[in-house]
């Protein structure tokens, strides 16, 4: 993919946008980043990161199965992710906020088994569909080539629907995520909101897997949101920041992938991880600074008291 990279950025961008596939990749990436940043923010707030991961992983057999049956993988992704979200919502623990890999042996073992079985099914479909083995990496780790116009259209419709639904759900969702018991007492239909959010999560996971691949969704769905959550506690600002980081990571990742021989999955996950590490470091430094300042302001008082006592 390496066409010459020069120091003239405008020229580079123009050179990149000559290619229709690149234009489509950027369009798809933009839609997905906005949705993933927004939905991901609520997901991190609700501690449902691993539900998102599971949904993305079951997207892989969906896409592989759809390809095997001669359908577009897009329908496979969305179909199975929405179905999976409804199943999780119907499970007894699905309504609870922490239906993730919390470390409790039984539950996480079940999730692990489901994920491994889903991946095994995906592998089965891929090997049943001969000549598709080269597409395996694209499904698992993402690609910038081969986003079709139809796929962009489906992503756009799903993305707009997703954001509209999120806007309707946002207030009760935020309320029930922050304090479920109080929200329930105030008459918020907590279970319905939780189920609706899981469907949104399924849509977001299906969209994200089409850019980063099924295995690397954490890079767009979790890392930008987690980064934003480290930087601010205010929901509106955090949401904006999360979408912004997801957009920057996607655009930068796709651009670097275009000019370098290494795939998008690597760049997007590395950039997202770097942002997350920076935010974590920044947070640690500012926390320590804050601590020292409060200690510094406390010490003279302590000295004064001690001096007074002497």
């Amino acid at each position: 993919m390496s066409s010459g990279l020069s120091w003239n950025l405008a020229d580079d961008v123009r050179q990149m946008l000559v290619f229709h596939f690149m234009l489509n990749a950027l369009r798809a990436g933009t839609i997905v980043a906005v949705v993933a940043g927004a939905v991901g923010y609520f997901m991190v707030l609700r501690r449902q990161a691993f539900a998102g991961h599971t949904l993305a992983v079951i997207g892989f057999p969906g896409a592989a199965g759809a390809t095997w049956l001669g359908l577009s993988p897009v329908f496979g992704y969305f179909g199975i992710c929405i179905a999976g979200a409804l199943v999780i919502a119907a499970l007894p623990s699905g309504g609870r906020a922490n239906a993730g890999l919390g470390g409790y042996g039984e539950e996480s073992a079940v999730i692990g088994t489901v994920q491994a079985f889903a991946l095994a099914c995906g592998f089965l479909f891929v090997s049943l569909y001969k000549g598709f083995l080269s597409g395996l990496n694209n499904l698992l780790f993402g690609t910038i080539i081969g986003v079709s116009d139809d796929q962009v259209l489906v992503l756009l419709i799903a993305g707009v629907g997703c954001l509209a639904m999120l806007m309707v759900l946002a207030r009760p969702l935020l309320f029930s995520s922050v304090d479920g018991a109080v929200a329930r007492a105030r008459g918020v239909p907590v279970r319905v909101v939780a189920a609706g959010f899981l469907v949104l999560l399924g849509l977001a996971a299906a969209g994200t897997s089409q850019v980063t691949g099924s295995l690397l969704v954490f890079a767009l769905l979790v890392a930008p949101a987690a980064t934003a959550a480290r930087l601010t506690a205010r929901p509106a600002l955090g949401l904006t920041l999360s979408v912004f980081i997801a957009l920057v990571v996607t655009w930068a990742g796709e651009t670097i992938a275009f000019f370098s021989p290494y795939p998008i999955g690597f760049w997007v996950s590395s950039l997202a991880f770097a942002a997350f590490l920076l935010a974590t470091g920044f947070r640690a430094v500012s926390d320590r600074h804050g601590q020292r300042r409060s200690r510094a302001s406390a010490r003279p008082m302590g000295n004064r008291v001690a001096a007074g006592a002497v």
Binding site: R47, F50, F141, A219, V222, P261, F266
Partner: peptide
């Protein structure tokens, strides 16, 4: 225990690194 966001993000990156080595 580290929280699941940290674990997930870190190991997604490790997987991304694997793709890098593959290329």
């Amino acid at each position: 225990a580290a929280d699941d966001v940290v674990i997930g993000t870190t190991f997604a990156w490790v997987l991304g690194l694997g793709v890098f080595f593959l290329t």
